[in-house]
Amino acid sequence: MELTKNVTLGVYLPAETVVHRLDPRNKILLSLVLITLIFFIDTYLVYAGFAVFMVALQKISRVPPGFVLRGLRPVFPLLAIIWVFQFFFYEAPDAVTLVSFWIFEGTDAGIHMGNLIILRVLMLYLVITTLTMTTSLVNLTHGMEALLSPFRRLGLPSQELAMIMVIALRFVPTFAEELEKIIKAQMARGVAFDRGNFLRRALSIFRAFLPLFVNAYKRGEELIVAMESRNYTGGAGRTKMKTLKMTRLDLLAIGVVLTFSVLVILLIFLY
């Protein structure tokens, strides 16, 4: 069964690499820069370049590429549906129709759009996994909290927001494990998840999510009690054991990413 096998979001792979040692605030900001960049790229060549950069980055941080790709498997069907949708329903003024029947009109612009969307999702995924796999949850919280703290003055509950984000991430593998147990328990009573038409399978999956939601609420309640009994009263005035420090390594990283970004922007304009 092993649902957790393909869960890559929220999983931290500890190692001693330069990327791991970077200040999390830096990593988060640089990730945002890269993500913003993704949405400006519109040629396959530049995407290829971006992909090469990310793969190199993952190689340096010892993130196993096979593992990363695995995490995409559950999403494949959804991506396929999106692609097909774009192919048949995307409208552009100078599109050339390739296939046509009933209300479906497949265009070359549709293919291009479908590809673009998938590539963007892929690149986004690569950036995010690089971030989460090289940054422990504790560091991610610190980083996010530190970055959001200037907005405290405007009334933004930065610490609490950071806490919410991290708790959500932290529970992804837990819920995957729990879902697996629930599915097994239902399989043990004769529910078949791998047979039947689409409707039946959808119903089976829905049946499995019900106990999961109920348990999620219960966990939430338990977590509240646990946090309160450890005197958690919100973010105001909380201090840290380890403070974040920017090092020369961080400056180097900023340099690298900015150089890369400039290159990409240049390429975008040239083509």
Binding site: K181, I182, Q186, A188, R189, P211, N215
Partner: peptide, 20 residues
């Protein structure tokens, strides 16, 4: 296997996972 699973009953440790 579906038939098998009805003949070999499995009671899980945590009934919250089993009752739906």
């Amino acid at each position: 296997v579906s038939e098998l699973r009805l003949q070999v009953g499995y009671v899980f440790q945590n009934p919250e996972h089993q009752l739906f």
